[in-house]
C-alpha cells in the first residue's frame, strides 16, 4: 500500500521544547498514507496534534524550539531531509495548504489579484500580466463572481466565503498533487461551510489532487473523506474507510464522538452524551492508553500496557485493548 502512496507519513513525532518546562510531545508517532486523488481526514479534538501534523508535513514548524522525527515521504523524497530553500520550492507547487481563518490568512494591504498571481509568478515564472489573467481564471474556477473586478479588491472587501475561495484558488494555483486543508470551514457559517466543502470536493475530483482534511467536525468528514484517521493525544487510534467508521466505530473514543452528535430523529428532550472528562485526564502513552481514564470500556490492562496499532477489518487499523463490539457483527 505504501509503495503506491503519494505521501507516506511514518512515525512522525513533534516535540516542542519550552523554556523552563518539560518538553511537550504534540505528535507522538503518527503514521498514515495518502494515495493520489484520495481524501484523507485527520480528526480529533483540540490539542490532539492535527494542526501540528500538517505544519510538520509542510515544513512550517519553527526550526528552533521544535524537533521533528520520523519521515514524511512525498513521491519518494523525505521532505524532512530537504533544505529550507528546496522546501520553499515545493510549497505552493507540489503541496498546497488552506488555513482556518480566511481573513487573517490574507495580507490586508495587497490586492487579491496580486496575492493569487504571486504564486503563479513564483512557481511558474509567469510575467505579471499573464499571471493576472490566469488569476482571474482561477477566481472564476473557485466560484467568485465577477473575478476581473475582484482582482483589484482587497481582502476586507470580500465576504468570508469569498476569502476562503480566494485562498483555495491560491493553494491550487499551481495544481499541487497534495492539498492540506486545516479546518477550512471552521471560521465560516454553516451555509458557506457547505459551499466550500462542495467546492473542495469538486476541485479534488477535477484536478486529481489528494486532500488531507483536518477537522474536528465529523459532519465534514462524512461529507468529504474517503478514509479517516482519528487522532487522540498525538497518536492515531483508529483508521477506517469512511462508511466503516460511521457504521461501526471500533475505538471507544470514535464511538463517543459519534454518540455525542445530536440526532434529528432522537427523542425530544434527550440529553447530549459528551465524551466524559477532558484531555487533562490523559495518562502518557508510554504507560498505557492515553484515553483510558475517559474510556467507558477501560480494562485494567489499558492503564498498564500501551496498545499497539493492529489491523481491524478490511483496510482498518485500531489501537485499542477493548474495542466497541457491534451486535450485527457478532450475529454475522
Amino acid at each position: 500500500m505504501s509503495s503506491l502512496a503519494l505521501l507516506d507519513v511514518r512515525d512522525l513525532t513533534v516535540t516542542f521544547h519550552r523554556k523552563g518546562a518539560r518538553p511537550f510531545t504534540a505528535v507522538d508517532g503518527v503514521s498514515f498514507d495518502v494515495e493520489p486523488g484520495r481524501t484523507v481526514g485527520l480528526v480529533g479534538e483540540s490539542g490532539c496534534g492535527k494542526s501540528v501534523t500538517s505544519l510538520a508535513i509542510m515544513g512550517l514548524l519553527p526550526r528552533r524550539g521544535a524537533t521533528v522525527g520520523g519521515s514524511v515521504t512525498f513521491e519518494g523524497t523525505d521532505l524532512l531531509t530537504l533544505s529550507a530553500s528546496a522546501m520553499r520550492e515545493r510549497r505552493g507547487r507540489d503541496l498546497g495548504m488552506v488555513f482556518q481563518d480566511p481573513l487573517s490568512s490574507l495580507n490586508p494591504v495587497v490586492s487579491i489579484g496580486l496575492q493569487v498571481s504571486e504564486v503563479l509568478e513564483r512557481h511558474r515564472g509567469l510575467p505579471r500580466k499573464k499571471a493576472m489573467v490566469e488569476a482571474a481564471d482561477l477566481l472564476d474556477k473557485v466560484g467568485i463572481p465577477d473575478p476581473r473586478r475582484r482582482l483589484s479588491e482587497y481582502p476586507h472587501q470580500l465576504s468570508g466565503g469569498m476569502r476562503q475561495r480566494a485562498l483555495i484558488a491560491m493553494a491550487l494555483a499551481c495544481r499541487p498533487r497534495l492539498l492540506i486543508a486545516d479546518e477550512p470551514t471552521t471560521a465560516l457559517d454553516v451555509t458557506i461551510q457547505a459551499q466550500i466543502l462542495a467546492l473542495l470536493a469538486e476541485l479534488v475530483r477535477d484536478t486529481g489532487t489528494a486532500l488531507i482534511l483536518i477537522t474536528h467536525d465529523l459532519g465534514v468528514v462524512a461529507g468529504l473523506c474517503d478514509e479517516v484517521n482519528v487522532l487522540y493525544a498525538g497518536r492515531v487510534v483508529e483508521r477506517a474507510e469512511r462508511h466503516a467508521l460511521f457504521a461501526r466505530p471500533r475505538h471507544p473514543y470514535t464511538n463517543g464522538l459519534l454518540a455525542s452528535i445530536p440526532r434529528l430523529d432522537g427523542a425530544r428532550g434527550e440529553r447530549l452524551r459528551p465524551v466524559r472528562g477532558s484531555v487533562n485526564d490523559n495518562i502518557p502513552w508510554r504507560s498505557g492508553c492515553a484515553f483510558a481514564p475517559r474510556c467507558p470500556n477501560a480494562l485494567d490492562v489499558c492503564r498498564l500496557v500501551t496498545p499497539e496499532m493492529v489491523a481491524d477489518g478490511p483496510g482498518g487499523l485500531l489501537r485499542c485493548h477493548n474495542p466497541v463490539v457491534h451486535t450485527e457483527e457478532v450475529t454475522a
Binding site: 515545493r90 488555513f99 491560491m170 493553494a171
Partner: peptide, 9 residues
Amino acid sequence: LAATALGVR
C-alpha cells in the same frame, strides 16, 4: 504563514 505555505520567496 499562509504566504510561506505557498512557497513565496
